[in-house]
């Protein structure tokens, strides 16, 4: 199987990763060989086989409405996990609005 440069660049766009020229040419060779490897599955008969949907067959893991949870973390601790926060305790992130397009 082969993967065109155009498809590869589209895939990188979908994955939100910029790939340098060297990586593009490397993946242009590697991804098709990995896809050929996993294509071995096509010959396995799977008619009427129910696909697995997760690591467990548990469904609807529910808890009682009245259960009270301890908070997962102190907001103060959470601030240390972020790159940046201001004196009011707000977490500062890069702007995501107001770009040119």
């Amino acid at each position: 199987m082969s993967l065109s440069r155009e498809s590869l660049e589209h895939l990188a766009d979908l994955a939100r990763i910029h790939l340098a020229e060297g990586e593009l040419s490397r993946f242009e060779k590697e991804l098709p060989s990995l896809l050929d490897f996993v294509a071995a599955l096509q010959s396995v008969p799977t008619d009427a086989v129910i696909p697995v949907t997760g690591g467990t067959d548990l469904t609807n893991s529910l808890r009682r409405d009245k259960e009270v949870f301890a908070p997962l973390g102190d907001p103060e601790d959470l601030r240390t996990a972020f790159s940046n926060s201001d004196e009011r305790g707000y977490l500062v992130v890069s702007k995501i609005f107001g770009y040119e397009d």
């Binding site: 979908l14 994955a15 993946f27 896809l35 599955l41 129910i50 696909p51």
Partner: peptide, 28 residues
């Protein structure tokens, strides 16, 4: 990066049934 690209491919429109769904059946 390699695995993100591979994963994005097998989940993308038109390939999902052939790869991901097939793999989950073989997993059964």
């Amino acid at each position: 990066k390699r695995r993100i690209m591979m994963g994005t491919y097998v989940l993308s429109h038109g390939y999902y049934d052939a790869y991901y769904l097939k793999a989950q059946k073989v997993r059964r």
